[in-house]
Design a protein around this nucleic acid. Structure first.
Lengths: 343, 343
DNA sequence: TTGAAAGCGCTAACAA
DNA sequence: TTGTTAGCGCTTTCAA
């Protein structure tokens, strides 16, 4: 290394000169659908190739008044579910020629400042997967006229398109899986803090129990983590003894796995013999043999694709009515429930 | 929704007029370390606040000839280790006022095109965590004069700063943990495809076995995934029987957990009784009770911080010599090895 | 300390 | 189909 006279990166001007055309022509050669004669276009592309030219995204964005960037707002990125979600989102965006600007918004960061920050890039959209409430995000995006898509944050909350899942179906599926295993006394493990998606499925589950006139005990966890599930396990066992609970719905797989670790692997409780468990999400770990967790799957890839589609659609027609796309769930029967006929 | 006269986002010009100053002054008010009188600055900031003005990152980047964006190139983002890595990277960048541009480069995407794409944003750096080889990335960044930092891709491979871990120590630690458990016949599980970090630790482990004149059987997995570990488990058991293997080093935790799922949870093999296992990385799942995997920890947060520091350093002094920061590892003794004194 | 003017690299009118 | 011109919003010499 060492010598290499650092040459200024070539601009459309350089390409124009090399190809013997004007800068506008160069621009057109790089603009899909622009009117350029094939020969000229080829000449321009060749010259560009030779010079190592690429369109400056900053300049292009500045002039177009919006870049090809799309903000992804996500919390707890190191959680299996969220990681998969972000991966799918990023892939879909890339496929559409959009570039994901990542914004990790864990508790403690100043979401207000962060959102302003990504808006300063004239992003062509923002996708929020975080489950921390963020009215300021909606407000900021709306004021800036930036398409906003929320995933699992409730149906069309005014000012944003939404991708969500069928909560009722989810809660019901959990109930049915346990019920099919012969459970008549239920329990629910969910975090205390309200969240559209997680609280929603929990409430749907409770509603089912009540509708069937079957008793259900609610246990609250600190959050949705493995640790929280693990910590709640003793309370669950106590409740099981006290109330004769035979089956529990854990609002996330991570919680369920935490419970399994404590109950099955540490204390040797027979699951599903003594207690049946159903989780939610179908993260990869749910399928691992140590857990073989019966759960409710939501199709992350499908949701991600829909989110990108919605952003694109609004980009094209800014004042179309806000849309909510709702997706169904799938029961995944594994080894923490007793097999039963489809309910 | 519907009314809201979509007002054009305010520019420095609007702020200038509102504050009764020139655009240059507005610019200075938003430039750390620029000479502006405190009163004027305050007036400008107030006006900006009132108008909802924020500096346009595209315009600023265009004129500065580099943006505050930093590319993160990562593969298999939905893997626990990588997800954590990206999260740490993103947090550190954000903390420095840099914005992570995410590039998911799984096999199948055209890495060449993708890297050109992020370079078109005049990024101020690129951080690569992917373990797929990518000489074209190095070349492209160098040509564009963009700082490049590689994580776990080998020491200063010319043209890039590097963060890596002490492979020898890693391989040795694995050997020692097994040896301390009384193992005299070893096995190694690693993917066939070469990768600096993973192959390196594997080779260091092999070297240790040889140096101690102890026999070691090598088993190859398809990749580094849980599935691959699971699939390799039968071969491991066969080898254990055939060669009297008592302990195995799995080159990643995910592999080790796959093996554990098959052997311990499906076939009821006594681990560590019949076979001891050591993994590598210390992902969250390694600590879950079902596995309680003894492993070698690498400090992802520390590595991420170092990577960002290196990028920043080169940004400041573009022609400083390439630097390699190497980090140590830590033995984490859990339940897949027999306790022993520190080797 | 502040303002005027030039230019970062690009695209979109408008003309030819 | 192609070229000319203006301007996206900002920072930055250079003068005052």
């Amino acid at each position: 290394m060492g010598g290499e006279p650092r040459t200024r990166t070539p601009t459309s001007f350089d390409v124009a000169r090399a190809a013997g055309v004007s800068r506008s022509t160069v621009s057109r050669a790089f603009t899909p659908g622009a009117r350029v004669s094939p020969e000229v276009r080829a000449r321009v592309l060749d010259a560009a190739e030779a010079l190592g030219y690429r369109v400056n995204a900053l300049a292009r964005g500045l002039q177009a008044r919006h870049s090809r960037l799309v903000g992804i707002v996500a919390s707890r990125l190191d959680t299996p579910f969220r990681a998969l979600q972000v991966r799918c989102l990023a892939q879909n965006l890339l496929r559409e020629g959009l570039d994901p600007l990542l914004l990790v918004a864990d508790r403690g960061e100043d979401i207000r400042a962060l959102i302003q920050n990504i808006l300063s890039y004239s992003v062509s959209g923002v996708i929020v997967t975080s489950d921390t409430p963020a009215p300021e995000v909606v407000e900021a995006c709306n004021r800036a006229g930036v398409p906003l898509v929320m995933i699992n944050r409730g149906p069309a909350s005014a000012g944003a398109d939404t991708v969500c899942l069928d909560l009722d179906a989810g809660g019901r599926a959990a109930f049915e899986m346990l019920r099919a295993g012969g459970v008549t006394r239920f329990a629910l493990l969910a975090q205390a803090e309200r969240t559209w998606s997680v609280s929603g499925r929990a409430e749907a589950f409770l509603a089912c129990c009540r509708a069937h006139d079957l008793p259900v005990t609610t246990i609250e966890s600190a959050d949705q983590s493995h640790r929280a599930g693990h910590a709640a396990a003793d309370a669950i066992e106590a409740a099981a003894r006290r109330d004769g609970v035979q089956g529990i719905f854990c609002a996330t797989d991570l919680l369920a796995i935490g419970v399994l670790d404590r109950l099955r692997h540490e204390r040797g409780v027979d699951i599903p013999g003594a207690l049946q468990i159903v989780g939610f999400d179908d993260i990869a770990q749910a399928g691992w043999s140590a857990y073989s967790l019966s759960t409710i799957r939501q199709d992350v890839a499908q949701q991600a694709a829909a989110a990108v589609e919605l952003a694109l659609a609004r980009l094209e027609v800014p004042d179309r009515p806000f849309e909510t796309r709702s997706f169904g769930i799938t029961k995944v029967r594994r080894g923490t429930t007793r097999c039963g006929a489809e309910a």
